[in-house]
Simulated scan of single mutants.
Amino acid sequence: MHCNKFERLVSALYRCTRSAVCGAARSGVCGAAVRGQRSVRLQRSAAVWSPCQTASCHFSTGASSKNTVDPDEVRRFQSLAGKWWDEQGEFAALHAMNDLRVPFIRDNLLNVHRARHPGKPLAGLRILDVGCGGGLLTEPLGRLGATVVGVDPVEDSIYTAQLHASYDPDVRDAVSYQACTLEELMTEGEEEQGAGQFDAVVASEVVEHLADLETFAFCCSHVLKPGGSLFITTINKTNLSYALGIVVAEQLLRIVPSGTHDWEKFISPEDLERLLESNGFSVQSVQGMLYNPVSGAWSWTNSTAINYALHAVKLSDDPQPGRAEESGPHPEHHGAATHS
């Protein structure tokens, strides 16, 4: 009941947010945001993917090399590294999100990998959890039978994850953690866990904190096996996501710490899909998600205006521009996946 009322409220906000937000920001904030969004889309549309010419998976744009890590984001999460497992604290919404994201990952993987292992449905699968933080998603995937590697550039978060896993025999042998970036993992040991070593890559609430999404997409494709799955949950780039995700969630209700998100880093499902397809992925499903701060619960919704979950599959070992389009008709990827 609470969820239905909240979803109706969000729908009403969605209808009026554009005029309300712009009206409240005539000084130029809204105009700058819209211009920035248009600029980003134009840049992405004009960008041409090119393979890495060095082993470091860095992309040269202008005079600088880019990687996935934003130092400001690392410093921000460093200050929160000891709070990951406080279910009533700053990461309460992420704890609650497991009710959606764990079944979303599990069910889509089972649709791809038909094998059934009673009690351990993901047994035999190797999963990389990018930006794992304290292991909030890593551990549940390990309990489902997968071998999970969690990576995060914040060393104290990795220490928190290792310490928490050490107390639970059900996950202790299933998960492992490394304090490194995705591109460092890709290059540090090709034989051990480099190219094509993972059945799935998970990046939940991560891409909105990254410095370079092109590098991220390439590296994800590199570490995945052909046919491997990429799972992303993130925030859409809309006026409604600004109003609810930043103004309400951070500044008014304090659901997450102030300054956690930068609206300019948000990405729409359409832009994310184009980016992934240019790096050899086929997007299978995109599903809207909605958080109710009253009940503290997440639910699936038909609208992707705020949060959404995406599942994509790697098509080949050699992504090239247009490869996704040449591979044949796409599946109906905007329908809801099977959830439980």
Rank of each mutant, 00 (worst) to 15 (best):
V29W: 14
G322N: 11
C132D: 03
N307S: 12
H339S: 07
Y308I: 00
L144Q: 09
I246S: 05
N292C: 15
R41E: 12
N4K: 13
N98L: 10
C132W: 03
A20N: 02
F59Y: 06
L224G: 10
E87C: 04
D152K: 03
P121R: 10
P269K: 07
N67D: 13
V69E: 02
D271T: 12
E73K: 15
C220A: 14
V130D: 08
V34E: 15
L276H: 05
L128D: 12
T160R: 08
S258E: 11
P51C: 05
P121A: 13
S340M: 01
L276D: 11
P257K: 11
C220R: 06
Y242G: 03
C220W: 01
F104M: 13
S204Y: 01
C3H: 12
F218Q: 14
S19R: 08
G227I: 06
L122C: 03
L185C: 11
G194H: 05
V149A: 05
P51N: 11
S11K: 13
A305I: 11
A93I: 09
S278A: 14
R274T: 03
V130Q: 11
R38E: 12
T17G: 11
E188N: 13
G36S: 14
G194M: 03
L240G: 07
L128G: 13
P118S: 12
E250D: 02
V21W: 14
S295G: 10
H311G: 04
A249F: 14
T234H: 08
V294C: 12
L252V: 15
R101G: 00
D129C: 06
N307F: 12
G196Q: 09
N108K: 03
P293H: 04
G119A: 04
H222P: 00
G131D: 12
H261Y: 04
S268H: 06
V248H: 01
A179V: 02
